[in-house]
Amino acid sequence: MRNLGPVLTVIAALIALWYLAVVPMNAQWAQDQARRAGQDLGFAALVTETMSQQRPRLPAPHQVAAELWNSTVVEEWSGRRGFMNTGSLSNRSLVYHGWVTLSATLLGFAIGSGLGIALAVGIVHNRAMDASVMPWAIASQTVPILAIAPMIIVVLNAVGITGLVPKAIISTYLSFFPVVVGMVKGLRAPDHMQLDLMKTYSASGPQVFAKLRWPSSMPYLFASLKVAIAAALVGAIVAELPTGAVAGLGARLLSGSYYGQTVQIWSALFAAAILAALMVALIGAIQRMTLRRMGMAA
């Protein structure tokens, strides 16, 4: 809470900067319109004009907020195809598109973190895997994995696998690595003294794992899960691009950029940001709960 004041100040400053940038970014268009209509724009008129364009180069914050509100709550509550009228989510609402992206993200995140944990356990317990897998896991991340996304999607479509799974695979690709790195570090966190103590208890391998290595890796696990879920969201969004704007936040970005609907792009972007923040916060809450029950909370 000590940081609340400074954080709010910084956020306010960012929003103020944004408003300041809106005027010069959109001024050209506003001037052109006025010249065509034969009017001369004063400064005050120019400012109000730049804040309320249909397709601004840079939409004002309140326009984005209004679009976010309209395309979620208003669309579902009173829209013709909204939840209240039809009983199903409207395909024009960000709730629907957000859910499409979120489901792929969560599936990919679940597979990715499971795979990451399994790989980390293998690396810690098997010397051959330690020597051979880890360098390639690192190398795999210097490869722009997102670049493979369109190919995986198209190829899986050709084989007949569509919908959730291809997107989840991209998310898996992006989310397994932080988990591997974090968990290898975490499973190796117990020092020699603790391992020796387990040996004096004549603990078996699985016992050492369950009673010492696994519990002491928890802080590392949660730290890497936070990174992984953000990466999984990015993967799901990018995976939606090549399928050609059907559903999902990535599709909203793409169709927005096709039709010059900047407000739509920005609102999809903010919806993604809010989604990411919520998921990271959720994992943070689980982390605090778990660590407190384990008596490790700071």
């Binding site: 940081n3 709010l8 936070k226 936040l249 900047t262 993604a272």
Partner: peptide, 25 residues
């Protein structure tokens, strides 16, 4: 104290999504 939390948050966001905006600009 103000920028670090905000920066940490922004670093975790899907910034790749700004690509269409940048292409437009």
């Amino acid at each position: 104290r103000g920028l670090l939390p905000v920066g940490n948050f922004l670093a975790a966001l899907p910034i790749i999504g700004t690509a269409p905006i940048m292409v437009m600009w």
